[in-house]
Amino acid sequence: MAYDLSFAKDVYENAEEGHWIKMCMQCGVCAGSCPLGPHWEFSPRQLFQMIRAGKAEEVLKSESMWMCVSCYHCMVRCPRGLPITHIVHGLARFAVEKKRADKDQVTRRFAKILWENMERGGRIGEMALTTKLYMVNGIPDGVKKGMEMKDQAMSMLKSGRLKMDPLHLSRIRGHAGFKAMLKKAREIEQKKRES
């Protein structure tokens, strides 16, 4: 049944800032503002209308919300004040939670690698991150990419912009506190979900 609102209600209640989706008036500013416009299938306002129309599978399996680069243009321009950037990220996460997001989706993979890298040291370990990203499609491909970039990497190393830490061993000061914060955040999130 089209326009079965159960999916929409689920999104309104459970996706980050999802309740705002009700308020979209389909003006198209978000779509026109997005620098990734040529790359997605559905613009934010299209996603929102699809959600209202109950098109759960199409939305959750869509790659469109993974395209957001957080430039915030849509969000500052939205005449209805929707926090579109947040909503779009929220939808991506919602798709993950609903186990509909493709595990191989590149942005999703990137996001996962980035997060793990950051969580490990409390900050980004550039060399480890780069290495891991280069290797996502296998070692030969990674080596090839690495060779292409070697001049730049060398100059960054020389100028101290890149640290020689391939295993990402460095830790921020107060790393334990950082870990505790993340733990607490997860607990809060969990509690919120249960309630």
């Binding site: 049944m1 089209a2 326009y3 299209q46 209308q49 129309a53």
Partner: peptide, 9 residues
């Protein structure tokens, strides 16, 4: 806006 035919119950 969806550019599709829809059926509404």
């Amino acid at each position: 806006l969806l550019r599709t035919p829809e059926s509404l119950d």
